[in-house]
């Protein structure tokens, strides 16, 4: 791992875009449905983070916490309200091939009308790469994710885990500098999830790509990540702490020390969540108080004076 900063996130805030809230729901993740915010609230408030080149970085937080919003900003699908997000010192303005995205829902993300081979070739085709080279590169990626022999199949002939592999292969084949993954294994059964997690680690080691991985699963975070950023809850979510995971790969989650690490991470996450809940509650009271009108504030003040007088 080099020391060069790949992605730098500085003072990023994102206000709820009420007029365009649909954008927040585009991922089949309805976490934002139950957001308790006000339209003047921020989903993300003053987020700062530096991700190094080749790093495996985890965004960890409860659902609806804003981690996916930040990921969408890095991917270029959403605009930030203020602050700066840079890749190699260049401001991110929209989606781009240098940032490959693996979506949570493979069924939505892969193209059902293309074979596995054609799906994986897609990014190369958009770049205008010649057919022969495209075929070879795609086949390498397909082999890397363990789908060799399935190239000619269509997505509807594949299982959920295989579809997710197609998505990973498709991103890898396009050779992005950063791989952005949004809870990619969330919908899979435990067995498949573990296999894909191990494969992802080996793909990461082979390709040396920077990976940005969103999850709400703490043991997954500890199993995969080099660094874990813990999110508080929206509105005004932010990264409360970034902790390095000091264990070598492959990690054994049954190991006592790692188990303890998972426990302490859980505590940190819970603390972050309850702290922001308290803050929201306090703010809710202030808001309700303001809405009751000035009159009562006056009486409130008067009462204060009275009590002083007494």
């Amino acid at each position: 791992m080099s020391e060069k900063t790949k992605i730098s996130i500085e003072h990023v805030s994102k206000r709820y875009d009420v007029g365009n809230k649909a954008l927040l729901f585009t991922k089949g993740n309805y976490a934002h449905d139950n957001f308790v915010g006000h339209e003047t609230d921020y989903v993300l408030k003053d987020v700062n983070l530096a991700i190094k080149e080749g790093e495996f970085h985890i965004f960890l937080g409860a659902s609806g916490c804003g981690k996916t919003t930040l990921l969408n900003i890095v991917a270029g699908f959403l605009d930030k309200t203020s602050g700066s997000v840079q890749l190699d010192g260049k401001e991110i303005k929209g989606p781009g091939a240098e940032r490959g995205v693996v979506f949570q829902n493979a069924d939505l993300a892969i193209f059902p009308w293309l074979t596995v081979q054609k799906n994986v070739e897609y990014g190369l085709k958009m770049k205008g790469i010649k057919k022969e080279e495209r075929r070879k590169t795609a086949l390498d990626a397909i082999t890397l994710v363990g789908l060799k022999g399935h190239e000619k199949k269509y997505p509807d002939e594949l299982s959920g885990g295989m579809k997710q592999r197609v998505q990973i292969a498709r991103s890898i084949a396009a050779n992005p500098e950063v791989l952005i993954m949004d809870e990619p294994f969330g919908a899979l059964d435990a067995q498949t999830r573990r296999t894909l997690q191990d494969e992802l680690i080996s793909i990461w080691k082979k390709t040396g790509k920077t990976i940005l991985f969103v999850t709400h699963d703490i043991s997954e975070a500890v199993y995969l990540g080099e660094n874990i950023s813990i999110f508080s809850v929206a509105p005004d979510a932010t990264i409360v702490e970034t902790i390095p995971v000091p264990y070598l790969y492959p990690r054994d989650v049954n190991n006592k020390r790692i188990g303890d690490f998972v426990k302490s991470t859980t505590e940190k996450l819970e603390k972050a969540i309850s702290a922001s809940r308290k803050e929201h509650e306090r703010r809710g009271q202030v808001r309700a108080f303001k809405e009751r009108g000035e009159e009562e504030i006056v009486t409130e003040e008067k009462r204060d004076k009275d009590s002083v007088a007494v």
């Binding site: 091939a97 995205v101 829902n105 939505l108 897609y122 990014g123």
Partner: peptide, 22 residues
């Protein structure tokens, strides 16, 4: 689904390409 367009764009497709391919 907008995710299809997002996928195409983050694989390097421009507006015209995503119109034709998505």
């Amino acid at each position: 689904n907008p995710v299809k367009y997002q996928a195409a764009e983050s694989l390097g497709a421009n507006k015209f390409q995503s119109f034709v391919t998505v």
